[in-house]
Design a protein around this nucleic acid. Structure first.
Lengths: 117, 117
DNA sequence: TTTTGCAGTATATTTTTTGATACCAGGTAT
DNA sequence: ATACCTGGTATCAAAAAATATACTGCAAAA
């Protein structure tokens, strides 16, 4: 993709910094050491249980995972469903809003496959 | 994009966490409050001078901008060229590696235009 | 009856980021 | 002689993020 194609595709909305920017708020929403990694795991396998996420994201701590998941829930990217069985089962899955991030992860993975040795 | 399309496109390389993942290292490289915003500005206008970046990214501080630019230079996403005129002129531009992030920003902007009010 | 598994909480502490302030060097304009 | 411009650096304090450790409640299994 060239600069020209980029500007043409993104269109007239490239008003950075002024509250109309379609990138800055997204970037801010996804900030935090674990958020993107959690979302990516959920792109690959969905739903996932708390303990399952903890395993694939090791060495994440309970606290970090809980906090990140709460933020993602608040932003409506992830949905939490609790089944009151014993032992307790809680499943996390992407919402539609979260699933719409798939193209972002696809673009990142393409870049990674080109540049990460 | 569906989960199935995603997995098919990303292919067999979805080995998260184990050092072969094409996403995790990229995500880590782009972490930091200003990095993605700087790169995005350079997607829109390239090259840009130090003071120019400072203006569009206001309220960024000298320290923050300098540090972020250094990291981006280290990762070879951004190139720094100094012209020894007076007053001094320094221009920052995307490298080819950095330009290859355009599709990532395009995907983010698409998402942002759908979900950011 | 003690232990185990799940999904967390609570609290405190450490580490990392961020920010504010002042300063520098070289040349030009006043 | 003084002030100003650009593109920073240096130093320290403050705020935010991340981590460590211990603990909870519930039920079933040993």
């Amino acid at each position: 993709m060239t600069y020209e194609e980029f500007k043409e595709k993104v269109g007239s909305v490239i008003l950075t910094g002024e509250g109309n920017c379609p990138v800055t708020p997204v970037v801010q929403m996804l900030q935090g050491k674990w958020k993107l990694q959690i979302l990516y795991e959920l792109c690959i396998k969905c739903p996932m249980r708390f303990g399952e996420l903890k395993k694939v994201l090791k060495p994440i701590t309970n606290t970090a995972l809980t906090n990140a998941l709460k933020d993602l829930e608040t932003d409506e990217l992830v949905q939490r469903i609790q089944y009151n069985e014993m032992p307790l089962r809680v499943e996390y899955s992407l919402t539609e809003k979260g699933r719409d991030l798939l193209p972002v992860f696809y673009a990142i993975s393409q870049w990674g496959m080109k540049y990460i040795p």
